[in-house]
Amino acid sequence: MIRPDAELLLDITDLHAAVEDQPILKGVNLQVRAGEVHAVMGRNGSGKSTLSKVLAGHPAYRVTGGSVRYRGDDLLELEPEQRARLGVFLGFQYPVEIPGVSNLEFLRVATNTRRVAQGQEELDTFEFEDHVRERLKVVQMDPAFLERSVNEGFSGGEKKRNEILQMALLEPVMAILDETDSGLDIDALRVVAAGVNQLAGDHNATVLITHYQRLLDEITPDFVHVMAAGRILRTGGRELAQELEQTGYDWVDQELAVQGVA
């Protein structure tokens, strides 16, 4: 929902970033206000995933220019865990498997650090069990998953549900979901999308990074951005996504050529 007077959560200005000296982001500008749902689309290699990693503070990505303000403060100065505690959440495209670390323990530690940051009481083991079982319903997940190691042996769909479960527990202000739809069949996609919709509200915002229109059939964006060559090439409403679905990305090359970038 667009409200021009809503709080400005994320303010990205002329962001440049590189991986191993290879420049990937070349001047991204994006503003996200509370209550909004943004979709960032684009082909592979356009820089979408890099943008999400940079926002979450992945150490392999180096910011070479520009700024990112989160609720008015410099986001780039913060460690990854500080960002998470302040409500920035990245849903990973490829959640890592961490053998030996129990999913339940991981979720409890993460939830409690977020709660402390929000000035809430920590939950003890029993309270947390109740809490997490409640949240499991959001993603229709089997409680058996709690007993396993983090993401270990999970199917693609299970990993994505686990990501949304974490989102439900951490109650982020700014959720960035990187290719959450990839590798999901249509039923799993609906479950995940319903979870995202359920968690969206007036005081938080969501950025969906996606390749395809089909996630946007389930979650309606307020803004659609098309990324190419490390920048946002065009911004529009939900109709832009539909247009992309019909015409593909070929026009992107033409536009880049015109701008002398490609």
């Binding site: 865990e81 670390v101 993460a110 974490q166 951490l170």
Partner: peptide, 18 residues
């Protein structure tokens, strides 16, 4: 480590957890 830190767990705690 990054995955755990991105969920708010400090670097030291994440290392201990791993």
């Amino acid at each position: 480590l990054f995955y755990l830190r991105s969920r708010g767990i400090s670097a030291t705690d994440a290392a201990a957890l791993l």
